[in-house]
Nucleic acid binder design. Structure first.
Length: 399
RNA sequence: GGGGGAGUGCCCGAGUGGUUAAAGGGGACUGGCUGUAAACCAGUUGGCUCUGCCUACACAGGUUCGAAUCCUGUCUCCCCCA
């Protein structure tokens, strides 16, 4: 590839220092040493982040990258946030072993709105430029052909995801093949100097360089960051696998979810989210609590963690019902317990029956015996019905 | 255009005429242990008016005493050749 933008000059000490600080937590920053040179050139850099508004909520996984962008901003650089409203319709094949469905434009717009609102909890609005890639990707087919002419199938098929799918006889749609081209073209349009993303984005990020070169533009450097695993500690955090902690999760929920993260991932979480080592002197439980406190404070304010932790202790350490249990009106007298459990917790009656038989249903903390199944209204009124460890309803006689 | 293959429960995946609500695994749920961690043990995982009944193996028909399993048509997907 072209090296027209490469100059062999030695960066100043200050530029080298700044670059080193920025790349400290990165997995890779390519080409080697390039960032220091870019910083040394003096002008504020344009840092690109493309986001796919496929799901509206930002979770902690996103914040790893957003925090990095924030660091760039603090050094005086400019973030260009690209809402991939157009590419979202294509679907990023990264890390996918199957195709994903196309989204309709309304959903994408709504998602983008929410996403940005949340992103500015971390990013500095004044140093952020927001662009929608439909702005330039809604192009004529002759323009599209020009774009396509600058890449090759062989180059695209190099990527791991595609190799795997080919080997497994899985489909690869033409549209997916186009994805890197489109994302790469974003870099051309906005004159990106640096593009940041998760390690799973490496191919796409590098492809942006190819596209810029093909269009005679200076090439961006790229930085990949570690991927934060989800609550299961194994898979990448994402909404679709349900293993995510959303930045808008209520404090109690956020606290609880953090506590469920496996010990084995503690260090990773501390490093990626707080850029510190976990304080292990008082054991992993305390280190995890501290992590939960700090995260809740970050997204809900300094006052929030105390109440969230108390809620946690109440429910899971002391095994008591929460203060504010939702009411459930019941009318029958006597009431049939399986029916009651089914409506209270939105499960099937069969499931309710099984749970009772397995000792998973409690009334005011007392496990219900398998018999009897009918209770008088007096026996139930005002008491707390519980399914499993964390589902509660206060029974209220509505008749 | 031609040839071949596949569609099973939340997911993967066995099953090629009857003891199959359907092996096995994953996930999930419940109980035990506990630090709502991990590991481990046990149970559950279609619905219901539950010792029984109903609905289910892409969809619609058909053959049969009896079908997820055989036949026909439809839909969807994959591979190969051109």
């Amino acid at each position: 590839m072209s090296n027209v933008t490469q100059e062999a000059s030695q960066p100043s000490e200050e530029a080298a220092r700044q670059a080193a600080a920025l790349t400290a937590t990165a997995v890779e920053a390519l080409p080697e040493g390039r960032l220091a040179q870019q910083i040394d050139a003096g002008a504020p850099l344009r840092i690109k982040l493309g986001i796919d508004p496929t799901a509206p909520d930002i979770h902690l996984g996103h914040t790893v990258v957003l925090n990095k962008l924030r660091e760039f901003q603090e050094d005086g650089h400019k973030v260009v946030l690209i809402i991939g409203d157009y590419t979202a319709r294509v679907g990023d094949p990264s890390g996918r072993s199957d195709q994903r469905p196309m989204l309709d434009p309304e959903a994408i717009d709504a998602n983008a709105e929410t996403f940005m609102e949340q992103a500015f909890k971390i990013l500095d609005r004044d140093r952020t430029e927001v662009r929608y890639n439909s702005e330039w990707l809604k192009m004529q087919s002759d323009q599209l052909f020009a774009l396509m002419a600058r890449s090759t199938v062989a180059r695209l098929l190099e990527r791991d995801d595609f190799q795997k799918r080919m080997a497994a006889s899985q489909p690869i749609s033409m549209l997916e093949l186009m994805y890197p081209l489109l994302q790469g073209y974003d870099s051309v349009e906005i004159d990106a100097d640096v593009e940041v993303g998760g390690t799973d984005q490496k191919f796409n990020l590098l492809f942006g360089r190819d596209m810029q070169a093909a269009f005679g533009k200076p090439q961006q450097s790229i930085m990949t960051l570690p991927i934060l695993p989800g609550i299961d500690g194994v898979k990448k955090m994402s909404k679709s696998t349900g293993n995510y902690i959303g930045v808008t999760d209520p404090p109690e929920e956020m606290f609880g979810k953090v506590m469920r993260v496996p010990d084995a991932n503690l260090e990773e979480y501390w490093q990626l989210l707080l850029s510190e080592d976990p304080p292990m002197e008082e054991g992993p439980n305390e280190a995890k609590r501290e992590l939960a406190r700090r995260l809740v404070a970050r997204f809900h304010g300094e006052e929030a963690p105390a109440a969230a932790e108390e809620h946690f202790n109440r429910l899971f350490v002391r095994h008591e019902a929460p203060e504010d249990v939702e009411d459930l009106e019941f009318g029958e007298d006597p009431a049939h317990m399986p029916a009651l459990v089914a409506t209270a917790f939105n499960v099937s009656r069969s499931e309710a029956r099984r749970s009772i038989a397995q000792g998973g249903v409690k009334l005011d903390g007392e496990t219900l015996p398998p018999e009897p199944l009918d209770y008088t209204a007096n026996e139930l009124d005002g008491r707390v019905l519980q399914l499993g460890k964390r589902r509660f309803r206060r029974l209220v006689n509505g008749s």
